[in-house]
């Protein structure tokens, strides 16, 4: 029943809704119910806001010894993404080759399968990040129309 613990966070896991402290304007992702700066003064004054549509890679790593459930993706890229306003989010970077990733690279969120609870269990969906799609043709003749 581990699906339940993620079900209650679908706003965050599916749509990346963050919270913003209406006192000081700091944005939190994952959402916080209490502002780290304003603390008690922020209680009940945190509002839900969407994150900016894109961010940049603050740091990253190419994982060769991955967690169980990620074997088919090794080597996979984990990164900390910085959004405008300073919010930082950890996630996987997909749809590019590990050697293409660099600090400062622009990425946008994509909706992907993150984990699954075995073959019979719940599938956990959520955000990952991908570079904006740009034409990369490895083999021109295969990629062009007949």
């Amino acid at each position: 029943m581990a699906g339940v613990r993620f079900w209650r966070e679908f706003d965050t896991r599916y749509r990346m809704l963050a919270t913003r402290c209406s006192q000081c304007g700091l944005v939190y992702f994952p959402p916080r119910t209490v502002c780290r700066k304003c603390r008690r003064r922020s209680v009940g004054k945190m509002e839900k806001v969407p994150l900016p549509p894109q961010g940049t890679v603050l740091s990253y790593t190419v994982v060769h010894q991955g967690l169980k459930g990620f074997d088919a993706q090794v080597p996979y890229v984990m990164a900390i993404i910085e959004f405008e306003g300073g919010v930082t989010v950890l996630g996987q970077v997909v749809d590019c080759d590990p050697e293409d990733v660099a600090i400062g690279m622009e990425v946008k969120p994509v909706f992907r399968r993150v984990r699954e609870e075995g073959e019979a269990g719940v599938i956990h969906y959520g955000y990952k990040f991908a570079p904006p799609c740009f034409p990369v043709c490895v083999d021109e003749s295969l990629a062009s129309p007949e």
Partner: peptide, 19 residues
């Protein structure tokens, strides 16, 4: 058919539909 698209392990009908 010269080539076909292949989803990675983290793509499925739901993820593509959402995108």
């Amino acid at each position: 058919v010269k080539s076909k698209s292949v989803p990675t392990v983290d793509e499925d009908v739901v993820t593509m539909s959402v995108e």
